[in-house]
Design a protein around this nucleic acid. Structure first.
Length: 718
DNA sequence: AAGCAGCCAATTTTT
DNA sequence: TTGGCTGCTT
C-alpha cells in the first residue's frame, strides 16, 4: 500500500506545472486548465497524491463534477492509480452529492425519507397542474416562464418569501412560486435546483451537520469550476469553511453555459475568498497540433476580461486548417461527406470524426447526406433513456407505490394505459383531495372503499396498485419492473401499437438497467433500495451508451462536444447569424460567449480541422443568405488553406446570382455599402424571399440590422 | 379516447 | 420546414 516507489508513479510523464498543481500543500488552489492540458489527469493524480501521502484518506475528500460521466471517469482513473476501495468516497455531481446529504439528514431537511426527484419535465407538469388548480391564466403566465423564474430564484438561493417583486406581474409569479414550494413539500418531491438549495439550507441552518462535514472533508476538489452557479459556489463556501482546502480546476475560456446559470465570476471570487496566491496555468496542450492551437489562441484573444493563457504543443504545426465555402447547405454537406470518405479511405475510423454545429436544426441536411452515402453515424442530444415516455410511465408506477403522495406520478398513470378514467373523474379526485387536504391516492382510495364491486375506473386502479404493491413485495427491482410492466397493461398497450416494438424493447432494457444497478451499487439501507433506484433514474438520465463496437460518425452541437476530442473535426455553418448565433447578439456578453464556443469547437480537433459554411441555407423554410462568420476573420491567414479559393468578391457576386436581382436596384450585392434615406449608412448582409417578394438585410451603422422590402427600400449605392 | 387540422415559434443543456 | 401544442371532431 505504501511502497515508496509507488509514491511517484502517477507523477511520471507530467509537466512541471501539472506536478506543481498536484503536489500543492496546505492551501486552496485554482488551476486554469486549458483545453487538452491534462485536466482530468491532474485532478485524479491530485486525489491519488493526497491519499498516497496520507494527507487524507479516501473518505476524507470530496470531489464534485457536473456530469455522472465525469464522476465515473474520475473514480475509474483513481482506482487505476491506487488500490483503494471507492466505497464511502464522496465523488459525484453537485446534484448527486446534495441528494446524498439530504437523504442522510432528511429529518433536518424536513423531507420524507423516500422523497423523489422531479426532472425538468416532471417539474413543468407539476407547475401546470398547480396553475390550473390556482386558476392562473397560462397566456399571461406561461408555465415555462414560471419554471424559469422558480429555478432562477432557487439558483440564487432565494425562497419565495424572500423575493421582492417590484411589479404586479412578478408578484403573481412569485405567489405561484410560493404555492409550488408548498405543493412539492406536500407531495414529498424535490426538483433539481431544490436538491442544491435544500442542501445549502441544511448546512446553513444546522451548524453541527455543517461542522461534521467540514471536519470530514478537508479537501474539496471541483471540476469544470467555470460552470458553477451562484448557489453551487455558495454551497462550496459553506462546506469548505475557513480551514478546508478547495482545489478548483477550470477554464474561463471554455465557459459556455451562462444561459443555464454558470457564473464565470466565481473564478475571481474563489481567488479572493480562498486567498489563492497563484493561479496555476496549464498551457501545454497534449491534444492538438499547433496550427489548430494558434487558431484557437487567435480567436479567443479577441475576448476581454480573460484570466489569460496561451496554448502550445510540442507536437509540431500539423496540417493547415481547411476552409470550404459551399454554394448551399446541401453543397456544404456534400463536401463534408466527400472529405470524410477520403479520410476513411486513408485509414481513419468514423468514430474519430466529428461534425459539429451550433444548433440542432443544422443536423438534418448533414444526416441526409450521410444516409445517402450509407455511412454509420450517431447524433448526440436526443431524448435520453430515462426520459422516454414508456420508461417514465413504468417508473411512475414504482414511484407511486413507493410514495403515495406523489400526485405527479399518480396523474401520469391513473389512466395510462387507458382504463376509462376521464377528465371529469380526475377532476373529482382533485377536488376531493384539495377539500380534505390529502393526496390524490387518498381520494382514490376513498372512492374505492365506497364501491365494493366495481371492476373498472378508479376503484380498479386502486386495486391494481395495491395488488402490484403486494406482488413486488420482497422481489428484486428487476422482477418488480417486470410485474408492473405486465400487470399494469403497459406491455400489452405497446405491443398493440404499430410502432411500439422499440418501446417494448426499451422496457426490457429497463429491466436490465435495474439488474446492472443492483450489481454495481452498494446499497446502504436495504429497505430503501427501490427509492435509491428511482433516484438513480432521475439523476442519471441515461446517456445512450455509445456501443463502443460500432464505428460511427459523431454528430453533435458544439456545446455537447465540450470535453471530447476527435482526430478530425468539421465545424459547420460558420456564418454570421448561426455562429455567432443571431439571438446571442442581443444578450449581454453574448458575442464573447459565442467566441468561447468557437474556441471550444476548434480545440476539439487533434489533427485535422475543417471550417465550412454555405452561401445560402434553408432555415425555417426560407432560404437565407448569410455572410461568413466573423470568427473566420479572426484566424490568421497563414494557418488556413482555402479549398475553394473564393475571394470575398466572388462570394458576393455568386450569392447575388442565386437571389434574383431587382432590375432597378443595380448591383447591390452582399457586402455593398448603401445609404437609406431614413436609416443612413449600412452594409448589405443578406437576402431572402423570391423574385416577387425580395427582401434585403442591411446592417446599419446606427440602426442595427434591418430587413427591408427591396421593392420599397430607396437605397443608394455608395 | 384517439386522430387530425390549424397555429405558432424557432439557440445552446446537465442534473 | 419542422415540431409541439390546442382544440375540435369522430
Amino acid at each position: 500500500m505504501n511502497q515508496p516507489q509507488e509514491n511517484t508513479k502517477f507523477l511520471e510523464n507530467l509537466n512541471e506545472e501539472q506536478i506543481k498543481a498536484i503536489t500543492l500543500e496546505n492551501q486552496s488552489a485554482l488551476i486554469l486548465a486549458g483545453a487538452g492540458s491534462g485536466k482530468t489527469k491532474v485532478l485524479t493524480s491530485r486525489i491519488s497524491w493526497l491519499i498516497q501521502n496520507q494527507i487524507t484518506n479516501p473518505t476524507g475528500l470530496l470531489a464534485v463534477t457536473f456530469t455522472n460521466k465525469a464522476a465515473k471517469e474520475m473514480l475509474m482513473r483513481v482506482t487505476d492509480q491506487l488500490p483503494i476501495h471507492t466505497r464511502g468516497m464522496w465523488v459525484g455531481t453537485f446534484h448527486g452529492l446534495c441528494n446524498r446529504m439530504l437523504r442522510i439528514h432528511h429529518r433536518e431537511a424536513k423531507l420524507p425519507e423516500t422523497f423523489q426527484i422531479l426532472d425538468s419535465s416532471d417539474q413543468l407538469s407539476a407547475i401546470k397542474r398547480l396553475m390550473k388548480a390556482m386558476n392562473v391564466d397560462t397566456d399571461t403566465f406561461p408555465p415555462k416562464e414560471i419554471q424559469y423564474f422558480i429555478n432562477g430564484k432557487k439558483d440564487e438561493g432565494i425562497r419565495s418569501v424572500n423575493v421582492k417583486p417590484y411589479d404586479p406581474h412578478t408578484k403573481r409569479v412569485n405567489e405561484i412560486y410560493g404555492e409550488y414550494e408548498k405543493q412539492c413539500q406536500r407531495e414529498g418531491v424535490a426538483d433539481f435546483p431544490e436538491l442544491l438549495l435544500g442542501c445549502y439550507e441544511l448546512l446553513k441552518n444546522n451548524i453541527s451537520i455543517k461542522e461534521h462535514y467540514q471536519q470530514r472533508f478537508k479537501h474539496i476538489l471541483v471540476d469544470e469550476f467555470q460552470d458553477t452557479s451562484e448557489l453551487q459556489y455558495k454551497w462550496l463556501k459553506l462546506l469548505a469553511g475557513k480551514d478546508n482546502f478547495v482545489f478548483a480546476v477550470g477554464d474561463d475560456d471554455q465557459s459556455i453555459y451562462a444561459f443555464r446559470g454558470a457564473r464565470v465570476g466565481n473564478m475571481q471570487d474563489l481567488e479572493r475568498d480562498f486567498k489563492i496566491k497563484n493561479i496555476i496555468k496549464l498551457e501545454q496542450n497534449y491534444r492538438s497540433k499547433n496550427n489548430i492551437l494558434n487558431a484557437a489562441n487567435a480567436i479567443i484573444d479577441n475576448n476581454t476580461n480573460r484570466l489569460g493563457k496561451n496554448l502550445w504543443a510540442a507536437s509540431g504545426d500539423g496540417d493547415p486548417i481547411r476552409q470550404y465555402i459551399g454554394l448551399s447547405d446541401y453543397d456544404e454537406a456534400n463536401f463534408i461527406l466527400d472529405e470524410i470518405k477520403m479520410l476513411h479511405r486513408g485509414g481513419l475510423n468514423y468514430s474519430q470524426i466529428a461534425i459539429l454545429y451550433r444548433s440542432n436544426a443544422q443536423s438534418r441536411v448533414l444526416e441526409h447526406a450521410i444516409v445517402s452515402n450509407n455511412i454509420p453515424y450517431r447524433v448526440y442530444g436526443g431524448l435520453r433513456f430515462f426520459e422516454r415516455a414508456e420508461i417514465k410511465n413504468s417508473l411512475a408506477y414504482l414511484r407511486l407505490i413507493s410514495n403515495k403522495t406523489d400526485d405527479n406520478a399518480f396523474l401520469r398513470i391513473i389512466n395510462f394505459p387507458t382504463r376509462g378514467i376521464g377528465a371529469r373523474a380526475i377532476e373529482q379526485l382533485q377536488d376531493q383531495a384539495k377539500l380534505n387536504n390529502y393526496s390524490l391516492w387518498e381520494a382514490a382510495k376513498e372512492i374505492e372503499s365506497q364501491n365494493e364491486n366495481i371492476q373498472k375506473g378508479v376503484p380498479f386502479f386502486v386495486r391494481l396498485i395495491k395488488n402490484l404493491e403486494d406482488e413486488i413485495q420482497g422481489t428484486s427491482i428487476a422482477e418488480s419492473i417486470e410485474s408492473i410492466v405486465t400487470h399494469s397493461g403497459l406491455k400489452d398497450h405497446y405491443l398493440k401499437d404499430k410502432d411500439g416494438i422499440d418501446r417494448v424493447s426499451n422496457l426490457n432494457e429497463l429491466v436490465s438497467a435495474a439488474v446492472t444497478f443492483i450489481n454495481t451499487t452498494e446499497i446502504e439501507n436495504e429497505a430503501l433500495t427501490l427509492v435509491e433506484f428511482l433516484n438513480f433514474t432521475s439523476l442519471e438520465s441515461g446517456e445512450l451508451q455509445a456501443s463502443a463496437s460500432d464505428d460511427a460518425l459523431q454528430l453533435m452541437t458544439i456545446h455537447s462536444s465540450k470535453g471530447l476530442e476527435f482526430d478530425a473535426v468539421f465545424i459547420t455553418g460558420l456564418e454570421d447569424g448561426l455562429c455567432p448565433h443571431e439571438q446571442s447578439l442581443s444578450e449581454s456578453d453574448g458575442l464573447e460567449e459565442e467566441r468561447r464556443l468557437m474556441y471550444v469547437a476548434v480545440t476539439r480537433a487533434k489533427n485535422k480541422l475543417y471550417l465550412t459554411l454555405a452561401q445560402s441555407r434553408m432555415l425555417h423554410g426560407q432560404t437565407r443568405y448569410n455572410i461568413p462568420s466573423r470568427f473566420l476573420d479572426e484566424i490568421p491567414d497563414q494557418l488556413v488553406k482555402r479549398l475553394n479559393s473564393m475571394k470575398k468578391h466572388d462570394i458576393i457576386t455568386s450569392s447575388i446570382k442565386t437571389a434574383p436581382r431587382s432590375e432597378s436596384k443595380h448591383e447591390i450585392k452582399i457586402g455593398s455599402s448603401v445609404t437609406h434615406p431614413k436609416f443612413g449608412q449600412g452594409v448589405v448582409t443578406g437576402y431572402e424571399g423570391n423574385e416577387n417578394d425580395l427582401r434585403i438585410q442591411i446592417k446599419f451603422a446606427t440602426q442595427g440590422i434591418k430587413w427591408l422590402a427591396m421593392e420599397f427600400a430607396k437605397l443608394t449605392k455608395v
